[in-house]
Each structure stands twice: as C-alpha cells, then as structure tokens.
Design a protein around this nucleic acid. Structure first.
Lengths: 205, 205
DNA sequence: AGATCTGTCTACCATATGGTAAGTGACCAA
DNA sequence: TTGGTCACTTACCATATGGTAGACAGATCT
C-alpha cells in the first residue's frame, strides 16, 4: 500500500476515498457499503480504491484511525478549558454539538462502532482511551471536591455519551417525534441536554 | 404467503424464523444478514424462509411488527402503574432493564431502526406511536403539576430513551471502559441510571 | 533516449446473494 | 384410490461483491 497521500491538501485521491468511506460507513454501515458504490460516487474505478487501500478492511481501519484522531483533537481541546467543573462539562458538550453540525459523519461512525465487533471497535476505543481516561479522571476529581454529585465516573461518562450521541444521531426518532432535525432544533436540543445534565450533576445551584 | 403459523406454541417454523431473524438483525444488522446464513442456523433451506416470507423485506417487516407488539405490551404494562410521577418513571425504566435481561435482541433491534431508513423505521415508530404519546402526555402532566422539572417532553423522552438504550446496548464501549457486561453490572447500571434520572427530573428531594 | 515508478484503468474471477421454478413426500377429504 | 393442499426441498439464475492480474499513460530519474 502506498504510504504517502501525494498532496496533503485534503483533495488527494486517498483522502477523498477516506471522506466518502467515512460518510457511507457512518450512514449505510460498513457491511452495507460496497466498494463499487463508493467508487461510483467518487467517479473513479473500484481498483483505484484497492490501490490505495488493499482491502475493504484496511480501508475501514484507515477511516477509524483518522476519525479517532479528529475526534480526539476536537475534544481534547475543549477538555483543556480552564474553569470550574460544570463549565468544562458544558464546554465539552458544546464542542460535540459543534462537531455534529460540521461533521455529522464522525458521530455516525461512533455509533457504527458498536456493531463492528472486537477487531475494529477495539481499535477505535483504544485510540480514544487517553481521552476517556482524562474525562473520567476529571469527573472523579470534581466529585471528590464536592462540585458534582457522586456517581461511578465511567458509568456516568457512558450515560452522558449515550444521551448526547442519541440526541444527535437518532434522526429517525426525532422526526417521528415531530422534531425536524434542523439547525434551529439542534440549538434547542443542545440547550435541553445542558439543562438536563446540569440538573443531574451539579450539587448546588 | 401463508398466514397461519400452524401451532402457535412458538416453535412453529415461521416463529423460529422470526426469532433467528430478530437476533441476527439486532446484532449483525439487516443488510449484513443473509438468508443463507439464517437458514443454516435454523438447519433449514433458504427456500423455507422464502416460503413463509416471500422476500427479505417482508421478513424484516414481520420482525418489526412482532417486536413492536412485544415492546408495546411490556411497556404499556409498566406505564399503567399507579402512583406519583417518579415511581412510574422508575417502573418503566425497570421494565426496560428487565426486557434487556430477557430479550436483549429487542433492544438491539430498536437501535438498528435508525439505520433502516423511512420504510422500515417509520413502520416501527408508527407502531410505537401510541406508547410514545402516552409517555409524553404523562411527563407533561407531571411537569404541569410541579412534580418534575420543566422540559420539552418529547426531547426529554428522547434523552431518557437514549440514555437507557445506550447503557444497555453499548456493550463494546462498556467493555472498553472496564465494565464487564454481566448480570451484576446490569444491576449497577440500572441503579446508576435511576439515580441520574431522579436527580435530573424530580423537583424536590 | 531509455528505464523505472506512479496512479489509474480494463479485463476477469470465485463466491455469495436474493429470488424463481419446479419438484417431493406426507396427509386428508371425496 | 385419487386428487389436492401443505411444508419443505433440489435445481437454477442474474446480479453484485471483494479481490487478482496486468495493461497503459504520464512523470521522473539516469
């Protein structure tokens, strides 16, 4: 497999392939995505894809790796925010929503991880482990210092994660509930979730 | 397509097909499930499946319909619990966890709905609409009477749903977080989620 | 100029997939 | 006994899939 992307301006062929693959994996799913369909969308032959990524699985790994880096960078940034406990939680949630507005596929891929058993999912989670560790440690510290209600930090993290991801990716359900997934409604959902989380976490108003 | 299931004792061929299909759709996904694999697991020829369900899509619809009924029945029951606001929320959450312990595939299918666009997902959500309506109405009434913090009821419902489903189905993530998905941990997760929800919802301790 | 390397393409291929057509044996009513 | 229905089977088929082999044009190196 070639190791360089040629021009690194984001429009090189391998980079475009990764973009398309991420989008399709996130929405249709990995197994339901065919290399032919991917290639057709890129106006390229399937063999071009197989030239850069010698198998579909390698392509998946590449998508996962790149996405994990992007996710990590976006979240590490907001996690580094200074300030008391709740402000930081809020900053992280806001940055996830920003991410969802800009690159919804990234969040979709996170959801897809569940189905892709140990080989792929493990890789993804492993890449995000430092982030999870930091977040978990932060929550624990805040609970120790009495700023937040005491909970099992890792379960709390999972609950927050589930809520946010659900609110952002359950488009079908939203529509069925009469909430059109527009930019406006995204803001409302964000407000709603922050409100909920604050009630659940912060000890005294 | 034949309309009767022969013996309705749950071991009739069509019933067994539905069971296997539900399990596979919920874990591997609809598109990733092949009729051949399904048939092999049932020790039956693929054409037997196509005899009872003339196409894969019809099979999916049947799985959805049956699952929606089972889900509805289980939840309607606990929603009918008497008592003040929080007790009922708790009863519903507990019954979802009970369902998750007994029939994890049902919850898995719910998650799968998101990916299956409008034809299938709409059918599922439509079948559950009365339930959602009742739950939403209940939440609104509780907020009106001051037992619960005011929130947009349908968004609140989505948040609760996402949290519960996430806690129950994100097995990969749980494992990565060091939480082995055992029966013990299920109880802990249930306690954790009830605690969180109570903090977030109930007005006065 | 000639050789080599790069990126993409055309030409195939084995296998798997959803689905059609046509049986086969057991049972059952006339 | 025979004709028909039921549950299920074997025999196929068109298409789609991931992947291999190798050709071809252009750039780069010697």
């Amino acid at each position: 497999m070639p190791t360089t992307d040629g021009k690194a301006d984001g429009t090189s062929t391998p980079s475009r392939i990764l973009d398309a693959a991420l989008a399709s994996f996130a929405t249709r799913g990995y197994e339901a995505t065919s290399l032919d369909a991917l290639a057709a969308g890129l106006e390229v032959r399937k063999q071009t894809i197989l030239y850069w990524f010698p198998s579909k699985e390698v392509l998946l790994d590449a998508v996962i790796d790149r996405s994990a880096v992007e996710l990590s960078e976006a979240l590490e940034g907001s996690l580094a925010t200074a300030g008391t406990g709740w402000v930081r939680v809020e900053a992280v949630v806001r940055s996830v929503f920003r991410l969802a507005a800009r690159q919804p596929e990234l969040l979709g891929l996170v959801r897809e991880m569940g189905r892709l058993g140990p080989p792929a999912a493990t890789r993804f989670v492993a890449a995000l482990e430092p982030l999870v560790g930091r977040a978990s440690g932060f929550l624990e510290a805040e609970m120790d210092s009495g700023h937040m209600r005491r909970h099992e930090p890792r379960l709390l993290l999972l609950a927050i994660y589930s809520t946010v991801i659900g609110m952002l990716t359950e488009v079908e359900l939203l529509r069925a509930l009469g909430v059109e997934p527009t930019a406006r409604s995204l803001v409302r959902r964000r407000a709603e979730i922050l409100d909920l989380l604050r009630s659940a976490l912060v000890t005294v108003p």
